[in-house]
Design a protein around this nucleic acid. Sequence first.
DNA 1: GTGGTCTAGACCACC
DNA 2: GTGGTCTAGACCACC
Lengths: 128, 128, 128, 128
Amino acid sequence: MFKIEFTSDQPIYLQIIDGIKKAVATGQLRPGDQLPSQREFAVHLGVNPNTVQRAYREMEYLGLTVALRGLGTFLRRDAQMVVRIKDELIHQATKTFLAEMKSLGCSREQIDYIVQQLLAEMPECSKK
Amino acid sequence: MFKIEFTSDQPIYLQIIDGIKKAVATGQLRPGDQLPSQREFAVHLGVNPNTVQRAYREMEYLGLTVALRGLGTFLRRDAQMVVRIKDELIHQATKTFLAEMKSLGCSREQIDYIVQQLLAEMPECSKK
Amino acid sequence: MFKIEFTSDQPIYLQIIDGIKKAVATGQLRPGDQLPSQREFAVHLGVNPNTVQRAYREMEYLGLTVALRGLGTFLRRDAQMVVRIKDELIHQATKTFLAEMKSLGCSREQIDYIVQQLLAEMPECSKK
Amino acid sequence: MFKIEFTSDQPIYLQIIDGIKKAVATGQLRPGDQLPSQREFAVHLGVNPNTVQRAYREMEYLGLTVALRGLGTFLRRDAQMVVRIKDELIHQATKTFLAEMKSLGCSREQIDYIVQQLLAEMPECSKK
DNA sequence: GTGGTCTAGACCACC
DNA sequence: GTGGTCTAGACCACC
């Protein structure tokens, strides 16, 4: 599904949560789906099971998942969830982008100009 | 200066080139500066000297650096270079951002709207 | 096609590039032709595959070839290429010759005289 | 003094003779000088002593050297020799050059033109 | 010490 | 099977 960047500044458990969120936003995972078991996922990602457990716990706090003892962890059956996560990722990506542009010394006007220019060039991928 | 993401899909030698470019764009490195020696940089980044050399060689092809045998590798004394690299990184970042937004299902109008909104919120960091 | 001079001062990868260029100039290879695979050519020349790869990579930078992963390496379909390479080899050969003559203590007048003399003797090989 | 090209089409003993001739033409060796002993030279060039012996024998036939039993092999004390060898090498180099140009498809006119052009560009190295 | 070349060999991606 | 990346390590050229 995704890879862990072990040298990243972002903690691994947050990378896991982000990975799950992206999978939901892009439809790879859907409300009600079962997540991999903690042990299985830990092996697959090459991380400590405790780290996966922490990610799963946080996702439950965030209302994304429910853990059913003895059954596994499931994405909540919440139709709104997909939209909510998409919005969150979109805002997050935009903020990251704007910060990067600022760090490269771009003014607001420049950022606006470049985005408009490349948006115009870019095809409207899918109208679905 | 920067870290290598060993699990990234982007080859290490390209990560090195990008890292140098970012350092130039942000003023951490300036035209004429000497780069770390191949061996020294390889140890610091935790990669093989050959990988650093490949990055350095590519940068020489790109006209970014000059390698002087027995002396070291230097950024070319080219005042235009900084602007050129900044422009390149800006375009690259924008393209990556737009692609990510598209993959999250955003239309052009949505992308435009969100960027405008966050741009307005964001302070004009530095007027210098 | 050609042999490697292992004791030459000219690096092997440059000898390979020169060999390919000569083959193009003399019509043994034509635009669009597939080059030998890296491994196959390495065995044939008695050099390491990495050395062939370096030569191939440089030729791609020079715009001579296109490498298609899984398919092979091909001379670009560029009609101009043959003329361009011929010109390059002609100039190179002339420069080498003149340098050698100078090193033997020939003045410009002497070089001119000898070339004229031998040119006159030499038959116009092919009028085609 | 020079290196042997083991993969060359030219026999090694001729390469040795040529190497000696070039050394004479460029003044590295002078009439009357002693040549290296056959055994010593063979080790230095990495060839069989018999090969050096054949080269030395041919040079004696050519009147270039005299072998003095028990003393060694010497270039003949012949002032004309240097000029004669220079002329020979000059003609040989020119013939090789013209043949190469022909093989690249150059007409006499083209060869003449290119030589004139590069001769004009080339500085008159030494007026001595 | 610096960069440059080369070998040997592993593993991956695309087909 | 093809090209692409990377490591490990040797040896050379220039200073």
